[in-house]
């Protein structure tokens, strides 16, 4: 995997992430996606356990990184990342879930489901690639 590719998201890194991930092989890109999704999943566990504010920034950055990964040909993964980004943006909007605990719980559930689906899909892709 290229060493020039930034590992963490910052606004200034966006073009490098886009270009760097575009140049990756499918296998490497899938591995990177999987790594990022696993990271978000573990952060979500902390977030759900109550460590809100600090963890939210970290999750947001990981999801933004996912958003800027280019060259993915799997439409399912692309669409699920779009949904993940939407849910994160809504949580990130300050007043969105104030006085809406039920909606907030639904959103957390949706994010976890999305992540599970993406990870499952990536694992099966990685397995089929290594089988080839």
């Amino acid at each position: 995997m290229s060493d020039n590719l930034p590992r963490d998201f910052t606004i200034l890194n966006r073009p490098k992430i886009r270009e760097g991930t575009k140049a990756l092989s499918t296998e490497d890109r899938n591995k990177l996606l999987l790594e990022k999704c696993n990271k978000v999943t573990s952060l979500m566990e902390k977030y759900s356990a109550g460590h809100r504010k600090y963890v939210l920034c970290l999750i947001r950055d990981e999801v933004k990184y996912l958003k800027y990964i280019r060259g993915n040909e799997n439409h399912f993964i692309e669409n699920q990342i779009t949904r993940l980004t939407f849910e994160m943006n809504l949580i990130d909007r300050k007043a969105a879930y104030i006085n809406d605990q039920r909606g907030f719980k639904n959103a957390l559930e949706a994010i976890n489901t999305n992540l599970t689906l993406i990870i499952e899909e990536l694992n099966s892709e990685i397995q089929s690639e290594s089988g080839d």
């Binding site: 939407f86 809504l90 969105a96 879930y97 104030i98 006085n99 809406d100 039920r102 909606g103 959103a107």
Partner: peptide, 9 residues
């Protein structure tokens, strides 16, 4: 708010 958020979704 629940209705508002569900409409956004």
């Amino acid at each position: 708010k629940f209705i508002e958020n569900q409409i956004s979704h």
